[in-house]
């Protein structure tokens, strides 16, 4: 498979209301993750951090792009096991009715029938969007109560945006339910710009505003910052996290992508 050159930017902010940032983000090209943790007693930030750790290890260790779906499914399974083990441990320590869970939206470059493609996976209401031809499209489908209501025709999409239960999610990593992720496979060429975000972004600014930013800010790092700034501007009621990835081309070597990866590792200091 050809090398795919990606440029990316990531930004996260605790927001204006929360005290803890329970979101976690991974940008380890060609693997990108946003996770939005939930649960009190630090359950949320631990759960989302576990997801990032597992996918960071996966990216570091390398994966077979032709079997990316399997690899992601396995990694999600590992995340879930660790989150449950952690919750179990907390309960055993007497923390009470402890639970920890997290959403996850994952994007990575895969190979399908010999062609590079984006493989996306999501659980919960963290979203994947793509920008193509200046138009923003939501790719992932939320696993949320309101989304189910929209799909069954009970309420309209507009009503969903203000529905009181719009933040109740129906699938997550962690907890007793072993729900499955949804997967999406998109030809690489059908995505000029890929966006992963937590509901602290998508719940604060509408698609039109998001499209305006993504279509007008060329550098993905600036675009990520601008999206978070817009979410804060709109009230910042939740942790706001976003990754913006541009496919800039396919090449044999990818100097910029490699440099960015090294730089990220230095910043994080977490990767061996």
């Amino acid at each position: 498979m050809r090398q795919v050159e990606l440029h990316h930017g990531a930004a996260t902010d605790v927001g204006l209301v929360r005290e803890v940032n329970e979101d976690a983000v991974l940008a380890a090209p060609p693997v990108f993750v946003v996770a939005d943790g939930m649960g009190g007693h630090e359950g949320g930030d631990v759960a989302s951090a576990i997801v990032v750790e597992e996918f960071a290890a996966m990216a570091e260790g390398g994966y077979d792009p032709a079997r990316a779906t399997e690899v992601v499914a396995r990694t999600l399974e590992a995340c879930r096991d660790r989150i449950e083990a952690y919750a179990e441990q907390q309960r055993a320590a007497g923390v009470g009715p402890f639970h920890a869970g997290t959403t996850a939206v994952v994007a990575l470059v895969a190979e399908h029938e010999g062609q590079p493609a984006w493989l996306l996976a999501n659980m919960g209401d963290s979203r994947a969007y793509r920008l193509h031809g200046g138009r923003l499209h939501q790719v992932s489908v939320d696993h949320s109560v309101v989304q189910e209501l929209v799909e069954t025709g009970v309420i309209t999409a507009d009503a969903a945006a203000v529905h009181p239960e719009r933040h109740v999610i129906t699938r997550a990593l962690g907890g007793t339910e072993r729900s499955e992720a949804d997967y999406f496979l998109l030809p690489l060429g059908s995505v000029e710009r890929l966006v992963l975000c937590s509901d602290g972004i998508s719940g604060m600014i509408d698609d039109e505003e998001m499209q305006g930013i993504l279509d007008s800010v060329p550098d993905p790092r600036d675009a990520a910052d601008a999206l978070v700034a817009a979410a804060l501007e709109a009230g910042g009621r939740d942790n706001a996290t976003v990754v913006v990835v541009d496919v800039v081309g396919s090449a044999e070597t990818s100097y910029d992508a490699e440099r960015q990866r090294l730089s990220l590792q230095q910043k994080l200091g977490a990767l061996p």
Binding site: E22, M38, G39, G40, G44, H99, G101, D125, H143, V145, E148, P164, H167, V168, I169, T170, R171, A172, G174, G175, T176, E177, S179, D199, G203, R237, D238
Partner: peptide, 19 residues
């Protein structure tokens, strides 16, 4: 009410409805 912390699938909704 925007806070979805703690409102996981283990909440009051019957998840089986949403399989």
């Amino acid at each position: 009410a925007d806070d979805h912390d703690g409102r996981t699938q283990d909440g009051s909704w019957d998840v089986s409805e949403f399989q």
